[in-house]
Design a binder for these strands. Sequence first.
DNA 1: AAAAACATCCCCTTTAATAGGGATAGAGGG
DNA 2: CCCTCTATCCCTATTAAAGGGGATGTTTTT
Lengths: 200, 200
Amino acid sequence: MSKSLINIAILEPSQIITEGLSNILLKTGTYSKIFKIDSLNEFNTKLFGSQIDIAIINPNQIQNKLKEFSLLKKSLPNTLWTGLVYTFFDQTLLAQFDKIINITDSPESIGELIHKIKNADYHSVTGNEIEQLSEREIEVLKLLIKGLSNKEIGDKLNISIHTVISHRKNISQKTGIKSQAGLTIYAISNKIVQIEDYLT
Amino acid sequence: MSKSLINIAILEPSQIITEGLSNILLKTGTYSKIFKIDSLNEFNTKLFGSQIDIAIINPNQIQNKLKEFSLLKKSLPNTLWTGLVYTFFDQTLLAQFDKIINITDSPESIGELIHKIKNADYHSVTGNEIEQLSEREIEVLKLLIKGLSNKEIGDKLNISIHTVISHRKNISQKTGIKSQAGLTIYAISNKIVQIEDYLT
DNA sequence: AAAAACATCCCCTTTAATAGGGATAGAGGG
DNA sequence: CCCTCTATCCCTATTAAAGGGGATGTTTTT
């Protein structure tokens, strides 16, 4: 891949970030053309046929669209799929990307990204499956994180406290996490709960 | 306040965001001068004597510097203190600002901000004091969130379990949060712990 | 100098969670 | 049809936490 003009697609809802990133990319001195897009499927419409070398994507945009994203990666194997992270995201989500750049990265390190793509080939990796919690277990987990006791959870779900304890045992086994704090972080990072809902 | 040139200070560690925001502010068509700064105290050094009309600040930058920020607001009462939010923050932290803009806000709504400042006076409000946790309490909280028991925390800090329990009682009283899950979320949203450290 | 906050330690009682051990019934896939 | 997973329920013993009550000495603030 020895070409001097690089095509970069940016999928990011914040115009502030899109503007800033474009500027910094253009300032790296490499000749690049930047396409700003609003959704994943614009890769197949607006950008169809273009050879996109780097796609920079807000991970939120592939949330709940993992299959679509997988297909896209297969249909565009020569693209470097990059996640743009400015808050914490689920690790399994980030694992879908070939590379991660952070909003606080310096222009220099972003410049390096461009440099590398000119000199190397990247191979898309498929993320690992995590052991899924069942629906009921997730219900229990959500209430658990609200700080409810086993008994309160049972009352709320109309099941006995023993069932709740069973579910909790299974949750702990599946996740390997024993403490409530750890489970809270697990639930947040896996988007089972939104942290915003817990801020008063 | 009927002046055409507006001075804007931006305190934001991400260069991507600073770049993007500057661009959008300049594109609003108003004549504004933008100062990029790296810390709160540059208001008293680099910017000393300048009439800053709008300060746009990443709330992280005032975390643990609430007193300094309060004094600053008092010494610069004609400045509009604006928080730039791109992830969740503690609400009490956001209450310290006169105004909040979000990273996903459109250029138009940011332009409105500039427009308003030209036609109105803003009065700085002093935010409520957050009841601060003591150093020791924060140490205990951090270990608590790792899932350690009271006894383990005591062993780690070389204090008796009774002291740990005392600290926990005080933490609960100060924050009003009883459950470990709630405290975890409190600690994350107050940047006492980084959620990234807990992702395996 | 007095008051407030902090850090340390101790006691008691009640309530909840943990860690084992189970059982049963239904749904779904191979 | 068998096996696995899920959801439900139960028991016992041990450990931990919650919620009260204090006390003492040291900083820090007013």
